[in-house]
Computed example of a mutant assay.
Amino acid sequence: MSNRNTFVRRFAAGIAAVAALAAAGCGATTTGGDGEQEAASVEEGFTIGLLLPESKTARYEKFDRPYFEEAVAELCPNCEVSYQNADQDVSKQQSQAEAMLTEGVDVLVLDAVDAEAAGSIVQQAKGQGVPVVAYDRLAQGGVDYYVSFDNKTVGRVQGEALIEGMEKAGTAGDGPIVMINGSPTDPNAADFKAGAHEILDGQVEIGAEYDTADWSPDKAQQQMEQAITSIGADNISGVYSANDGMAAGIIAALKSAGVDEMPPITGQDAELAGIQRIISGDQYMTVYKAIRPEAEVAAAMAVAAATGEEYQGTDEHPLTEATDGAGETVPAVLLEPIAVTAENIEDTVISDGFYTVEEICTDEYADTDLCKGAGA
């Protein structure tokens, strides 16, 4: 079944609700005297602002943005998406949001660089009657909806896989692990860390632990170098890396220290380079988060919010609740993450069309088991 037909099937209920609203003759968005916005019209179209946080992680430009734009085109053919990327700069994202609000966007979809700082964006939007959908990271300030993954589950999946990898490698209990967590300004990173600790605490010795500003691979490499100096490269039995980009820096540090056979190393985001490191044996696992349904849910939430509808969720992606850093409860859809190892790459990222065998099996990886088995 095509992506187009799959999307229509998943969101048929939402489309019907929006179509009914359009048939009722709702006009373009305006702000009333009480600060409340009148509903926009799918029939006439409106503008959705999409603010993504950074470009160091490959997913945002390669997957999130195009998937979101495709989903909006399905739900609202006359709508426009105004897009900006903040390049991990809090003040830049603030300026981008202010410009969009000045230009008159009807709804904001916000993936915050800094969840707490983004509260000012949310408050400014609310002051102008513009609803906000928090995407992937839960911004403070009282957003209207939130879609992401169950982030503590992500950390638990990583922790479980790390222990599994050490058991398979025969290194469980042989020495300490190193934990290299994500950015302290990203609330998701705190959840990943908490979930991982739920699994790892009491099961392994944590010899060194770091939080990594900006999710920087370079900083992760420096932190791993520090851990190697304090623990000794040969004594490290595993490494918890919060994402694939940082795993690249961690592996570079280990190779520079003369390590030929990598200890089990985790990751996240199923980046192409991460998948290739898994099939070559440098990285043990990554977390695959199916970005297309996340982007599709965000688009459905945005269209519902702009048109005055209440997003109800679907059987496949039911509506639940999440609590932001300020203690406010937000209607949310939380998707399930999947652990990817060498054993299930074909059944996950390849079968879903996230990557093709040809993309994974470049010349450098042609002799790996996966690529030889696929005849690449």
Results as ranks from 00 to 15, higher is better:
Met1Leu: 13
Ala322Met: 04
Thr314Met: 05
Asp191Pro: 00
Arg9Tyr: 12
Ala366Gly: 01
Glu343Met: 02
Lys372Phe: 00
Asn181Gly: 01
Lys219His: 00
Thr368Glu: 06
Ile291Asn: 05
Thr286Tyr: 01
Thr286Phe: 01
Pro53Val: 06
Lys255Ala: 07
Leu334Asn: 04
Ala306Asn: 12
Leu52Asp: 02
Gly159Ile: 07
Asp260Gln: 15
Val107Tyr: 02
Leu21Pro: 01
Leu319Met: 14
Ala306Cys: 12
Thr29Gln: 14
His197Glu: 13
Ile265Gly: 04
Ser2Ile: 10
Asn181Arg: 10
Ile251Ser: 04
Thr6Asp: 05
Ile236Asn: 04
Glu261Asn: 12
Asp186Ile: 03
Glu167Thr: 14
Leu50Arg: 02
Ala17Glu: 12
Ala247His: 09
Met262Lys: 11
Pro176Met: 09
Val303Ser: 08
Lys152Asn: 08
Asp211Pro: 00
Glu160Val: 04
Ala125Met: 10
Leu335Thr: 12
Ser2Arg: 06
Asp269Tyr: 10
Val239Ser: 10
Leu52Lys: 06
Ala213Asn: 09
Tyr145Arg: 09
Gln123Pro: 02
Ala305Asp: 06
Cys361Trp: 05
Glu364Ala: 15
Val357Gly: 00
Val204Asp: 10
Ala73Pro: 04
Ala58Val: 09
Asp89Asn: 15
Ala302Tyr: 07
Ile199Tyr: 05
Gly49Leu: 01
Glu43Met: 09
Leu110Tyr: 12
